[in-house]
Design a protein around this nucleic acid. Structure first.
Lengths: 155, 155
DNA sequence: ATACAGTATATGTATATACATATATTAAAA
DNA sequence: TTTTAATATATGTATATACATATACTGTAT
């Protein structure tokens, strides 16, 4: 049975809101689908989506502390501490103590920049195919509403 | 430094695509933000977003196999096998062997229906606040483009 | 200068996620 | 009918995620 053949018939709560339109489920579902697509391409260079994101921020934007990264990525800082481990282990980033010695300053290594450079055309391929399938207008709308959603969830 | 003060200045790849507009990063970021909001409400009834989603499908749509759930949720079936564990351990679902004895049929228990009923108004609160903050039109657009994105990622 | 409050990160624990692989069962082929 | 291919789920392993709590450091008040 294909996914599209599954119908959750009785899915209206009393006031008319549909559970099948749960914002959280919809977002997580789409995030899984898209992550699978990106991960599948990036696998050949040994990176995952999350790792590529972190690397891209560091390579394009320069060294950042864990706190800065976690705010930018809307990730708990304890999550980020752990997300950095595989990158450090593989020699793609370096973690140093900052001037404020409570902080850790994360910088890409030469190997990290190289890995990012290898991954970039693969990323670009998936990104472009997705934009093309969605259409420019829908894709732009998607990215805009995602940004709004992040802000709306936070205040 | 606030997240909005962080600027990834040099973020255009040669052909003009911006890394900061990575579809995957945007989706994952928004999924984290929204999940945090829903989880924060659902915590008082001991459910997480993922668990609430699964419960809602079973309660509103009836028993489903792991395969059916995994297709509907765009989740790897091995992930679903594991997602069910906490729900089973807490007595909210029952897992039985189907007529096709390779399959497992997942059904909500009475406790599961009760837990879902308790969670529903909490879910509704977060959902409505989000819709209100985004505006009906933006929210509808979001849910539509998310659906499109799932489809686009899959073919 | 010292005590105390606040901040940045780390660790313990639990769930979420997926790939590679193994197992069990069904369906198809010979 | 026996063999073989396909399907559904489970397990091993690794990463992603966040909360509660602990630790280390900074800044402030006295």
């Amino acid at each position: 049975m294909a996914a599209k053949d599954i119908h959750i018939s009785d899915n209206l709560v009393p006031n008319g809101l549909a559970l099948s339109k749960c914002t959280c489920m919809g977002l997580r579902k789409a995030a899984r689908a898209v992550t699978q697509a990106f991960d599948s391409e990036l696998r050949s260079v040994g990176l995952r989506s999350t790792q590529f994101s972190i690397l891209s921020i560091l390579v394009m934007g320069g060294a950042k502390t864990i706190g800065e990264l976690s705010k930018y990525l809307v990730t708990d800082s304890t999550t980020l501490t752990r997300n950095l481990r595989p990158l450090e282990r593989d020699g793609l980033i370096a973690i140093a103590t900052g001037e404020d010695r409570r902080t850790r300053v994360i910088a890409p290594t030469a190997a990290g920049e190289e890995s990012f450079a290898k991954a970039l055309p693969l990323w670009q391929g998936v990104q472009e195919r997705l934009i093309q399938k969605l259409g420019d207008s829908n894709w732009n709308t998607l990215l805009e509403t995602l940004d709004m959603t992040v802000k709306a969830s936070q205040d």
